[in-house]
């Protein structure tokens, strides 16, 4: 469970300013959602993988990908069965009322796969966020604009692992008191779970009062708050931000000129339909790889380590 949460490992990527880290992850997310070209989507997946590797998070990524792959399979299956726009028919099934004749086309499978990769990208970006961004840093960044809301988020972020642990404890206690969660009808199982949740909520409400008391004792709400800033903007942040800006600029400009988009139906287009497709892709990937490249340089080049 713990691997799903941020852990301080003293990594280069974890030392980025939250704004630079958010700009990098935000750019990746925007591009992953904007591009539909399989090569571009695969490229972003590759960047995500390399960055996860530099963030020493391959094990965590694997857990995320397991969930992602299950969802990807579902997307491919549903898309292949439901979309009848492809021309290259691989299998012609029976006629089903309302849905019509079931056909599976190569294009529909291909489109499902591309959308699956897009989903893996989004999941990988979320994984990266958990690996490299300390939640307090983000909260700190946003507290300037919405102090109370970010505090609520901070409290929720802190309470999540506590609640997960408590859930386990209450479940164990109920097991010892004879509740068998694996037996019974669906209704009975729901009833058992509701008792568990009931207990969890009661305890959480009691705890929240104590946390509130501790906040009150530390002058919370006694007047305007100031903001504790600890993170300084460094050259590494400028370089990462520049990389993200280049990737975003090139990606959006490419999309405007038709690169990064792809035609799946009725028949698949050509994967590489000109040097422009490759050029834009390379610029986007180079920009997105900036944090990973800087990390590599930071480890190997003393000059870079001292200067950035």
């Amino acid at each position: 469970m713990r691997k799903f949460f941020y852990a301080e490992k003293g990594l280069f990527l974890q030392s980025l300013h939250p704004l630079a880290a958010l700009a990098f992850l935000g750019t990746m997310l925007v591009l992953a959602l904007a591009f539909s070209h399989p090569l571009y989507l695969a490229g972003i997946f590759l960047v995500a993988g390399v960055t996860v590797w530099t963030a020493e998070g391959l094990e965590t990524w694997e857990s995320y990908l397991k969930i992602g792959l299950v969802m990807m399979t579902l997307i491919v299956l549903i898309n292949a069965l439901m979309v009848h726009e492809g021309r290259t028919i691989l299998w012609r099934g029976p006629l089903i009322p309302v849905f019509g004749r079931i056909t599976i086309s190569l294009e529909a499978i291909y489109y499902g796969l591309a959308m699956g990769v897009r989903l893996l990208n989004v999941i990988s970006i979320f994984c990266l966020f958990n690996l490299i961004v300390h939640p307090d840093k983000i909260i700190n960044l946003f507290s300037r604009f919405a102090g109370k809301s970010t505090l609520v988020i901070a409290l929720a972020a802190r309470m999540f692992p506590v609640m997960a642990q408590r859930y386990e404890n209450i479940r164990a206690v109920q097991q010892i008191r004879g509740v068998d969660f694996s037996r019974g009808t669906l209704k009975e199982k729901v009833q058992k779970s509701s008792l568990l949740i009931n207990s969890l909520i009661l305890s959480s409400l009691e705890d929240s009062l104590e946390i509130a008391e501790s906040m009150q004792a530390r002058a919370f709400g006694s007047g305007p708050r100031s903001r504790y800033r600890r993170h300084r903007w460094q050259p590494r942040d400028t370089l990462c931000l520049a990389g993200s800006a280049v990737a975003l600029g090139a990606g959006l400009a490419g999309l405007f000129h038709g690169f990064g988009a792809y035609t799946f139906y009725p028949q698949m287009g050509c994967l590489v339909d000109g040097p422009g497709t490759v050029a834009v892709l390379l610029i986007v990937l180079s920009g997105l790889l900036a944090p990973a490249i800087l990390n590599w340089g930071w480890h190997r080049c003393t000059f870079l380590r001292l200067k950035i």
Partner: peptide, 10 residues
């Protein structure tokens, strides 16, 4: 039950 933030320094 008296911790508010996720990190030590915060």
């Amino acid at each position: 039950k008296q911790m508010v933030m996720t990190g030590v320094e915060a």
